[in-house]
Amino acid sequence: MRQLFGTIALINMGLLLTGQSHAGVAESLIPHRAVYDLELEDASERSGIESMFGRMVYEFNGSACSGYTVGFRFVTQVDTGNAVRLTDQQTTTYENVEERTFRFITKSYVNQKLDLEVRGSAKAEADGTSVDLTTPRRAKLELDPAQFPTAQMISLIERAKSGERFFQSHLFDGSDEGSKVMLTTSVVGSPRVSTVDEKERTATGDFADMPTWPVTIAYFDETKKEEETPIYRISFKLYENGITRDLVMDYGEFALKGTLSSLETFDGEGC
């Protein structure tokens, strides 16, 4: 299974439609900690998955002045009928939008044993993305031009405000051992007040009856030119304050549904 770190970037990209100016966008994002209960929505026979469930925790903090930090944990238990596997991915990132820098640490555990650790930093330049990896190997990479998650979100807002409902961009998020730039394709529906199930209504509280944008974002690996299908896609409902609910993460051979079960908001740092 491909590393799930890309989910962070997808959720960060989910912040892109706040309908504000650049400064207003940063001010409207609410620092928060969201917990999502995960369950298997669909699985093909080829996947070999009989059951799967878990939990995702996403914490967003910071400001345009101090930079943005994201803490992310994704835990799943997979039953293939022959074996049960527990996976636990823990990621921390920091992004300075003004300086166009990005740091990332990801630790992936399988059955409570460390399976992979990735550490590195990156800087976005006009002619490319410079990546400095320290773990699991020391390497300096020069990748195609790309943006980091929060910077990409800000740059896409103007197109969303102008009524664009389909757009593409390139993103570096540190996934795949920090060695790739991904092509992302976003499809955004018109804002609407949609039905909220009882569990998510309890979690979202006063936000429950606010309009949301239905968003679907797909990730493509451009190094595999012959493949036209995305590596994975995520769909969700997006509130203007950056909080998301009603997630569906589709990895092709299986899909997970994420239900917002707990939400805590924090005071912003301001500038």
Rank of each mutant, 00 (worst) to 15 (best):
R85V: 15
S262D: 12
A151I: 02
T69I: 14
T101W: 03
Y36L: 10
R159A: 04
R103S: 08
Q168A: 08
S47W: 06
T195E: 15
V187D: 03
T76G: 05
E50T: 12
D173H: 10
R33A: 10
A151G: 15
T129D: 00
T265I: 09
Y109T: 04
T135M: 14
T259C: 08
G268R: 03
E39T: 15
R201T: 06
T204A: 13
S175A: 05
T265W: 09
Q3L: 11
A34I: 02
H22S: 13
F148N: 00
A160T: 06
S179W: 03
F74R: 03
A218E: 14
S63A: 11
L29K: 12
D127V: 00
T87P: 04
N111M: 07
G71D: 15
A23S: 11
C65W: 00
F172C: 01
L116N: 11
L40V: 01
I49W: 08
G163K: 01
T184H: 11
I11Y: 03
G242F: 03
T184C: 10
K257I: 08
K237P: 02
Q168H: 08
N111K: 05
S261N: 12
E198R: 14
T80Q: 07
S186F: 06
T244C: 10
R103T: 06
L38H: 02
K237M: 13
L141E: 00
A208N: 03
N241R: 06
E177R: 05
E198T: 12
K123T: 13
F236L: 10
G178C: 02
D115F: 14
Y36D: 07
V84H: 11
G120T: 02
E142K: 12
F172V: 01
S108G: 10
N12G: 07
K107F: 00
I105R: 15
S66V: 02
A26V: 05
P230Q: 06
L38D: 00
G205M: 06
D115W: 13
R159F: 06
T76F: 04
I157P: 00
F172G: 01
D115Y: 14
R103M: 02
E142Y: 13
A83W: 13
T7H: 09
T7W: 07
